[in-house]
Simulated assay, not measured.
Amino acid sequence: MPNANDTFITTLRRAHLEWGSYRHTNSRGIRLGEGYLQIPISEARRLQIYNRNQVGGNTSYTCDSADGFLNHVVLKSSGCIRRGDIHAKQFHGRGNLQLLGDWFNHVDAQIGDEVEIRWTSPTHMVIRKL
């Protein structure tokens, strides 16, 4: 689990900004405005950020954005790079896949922009577009 002041930076790609429409699967229909934050596997391992495959692992984090647009929203850690892996590969809005897409729009996020994720406690983070 992350500690206060742990941090990492992720670089936005098209798939992160257009998750609901730029897809390599037909598992569901197109949904505009969805977005997610990638968690590099090295950071997921270092910070012990888990997905639902880890029994007893935390997958919900309270999040604020440094610009004040997001205020105590809940992000979920999910996905994995290999089937059955316990480490998460992304954060997305719990129950609202457009949550981060709305923030990306608010901060005018573009492909190649960087986002800093900093923890203030093991279950609370602040995100900031650099």
Rank of each mutant, 00 (worst) to 15 (best):
I30H: 04
N5H: 07
E43F: 06
W103T: 11
R28W: 13
E18C: 00
D85L: 09
E18I: 00
W103P: 09
R128Y: 06
S21Y: 02
A4I: 05
V74L: 07
P122K: 06
Y61A: 02
N26T: 13
A109M: 04
G95V: 12
R46A: 12
L47F: 06
R31V: 06
V107E: 04
Q98V: 09
W19L: 06
H16D: 04
S78E: 12
L99C: 06
Q54H: 10
F104A: 10
R28S: 12
T25A: 08
L97E: 11
T120W: 00
V115F: 12
P122T: 11
L12I: 02
H87I: 01
K89V: 15
R13E: 10
F104V: 03
G20F: 03
L130N: 10
N105S: 14
A4P: 11
W119M: 05
I127T: 07
V115N: 02
F8I: 01
L32F: 07
Y61T: 03
E116Q: 15
Y22W: 13
R118V: 12
Y61D: 04
G20S: 02
Q90M: 15
L130T: 13
G93K: 01
E116S: 15
N53Q: 12
A66M: 03
H87E: 08
S27W: 02
R31N: 00
F104D: 09
C63E: 05
F69S: 06
W19S: 06
E114N: 15
K129A: 11
G56S: 05
I117Q: 05
A109W: 02
N71S: 14
S27T: 09
S78Y: 06
I86R: 07
E34T: 00
H72S: 11
G79K: 01
S42P: 02
I41F: 12
D64P: 04
E34P: 00
I81K: 12
H24T: 13
M1T: 08
M1H: 05
G84D: 13
V73E: 07
L130C: 11
N71R: 15
I127W: 05
Y22T: 05
R52M: 13
N5L: 09
Q90N: 14
S121P: 01
S60P: 01
N53C: 04
D85Q: 09
H87S: 05
D108V: 12
R46K: 11
L47I: 00
G33F: 01
S65T: 12
F91H: 05
E18F: 09
G57N: 04
R82T: 15
S121I: 07
N71L: 14
Q110A: 03
L70K: 06
N58M: 08
R82I: 14
T10C: 00
N51W: 00
F104M: 10
E34I: 00
L130F: 11
S42T: 13
N26A: 13
I39T: 06
L130D: 11
T59M: 02
I86E: 13
R83Y: 15
W119D: 00
R13F: 13
T7C: 08
V55C: 05
V126D: 07
N71G: 08
P2T: 04
S121F: 02
D85M: 04
M125S: 09
H24K: 10
N3G: 07
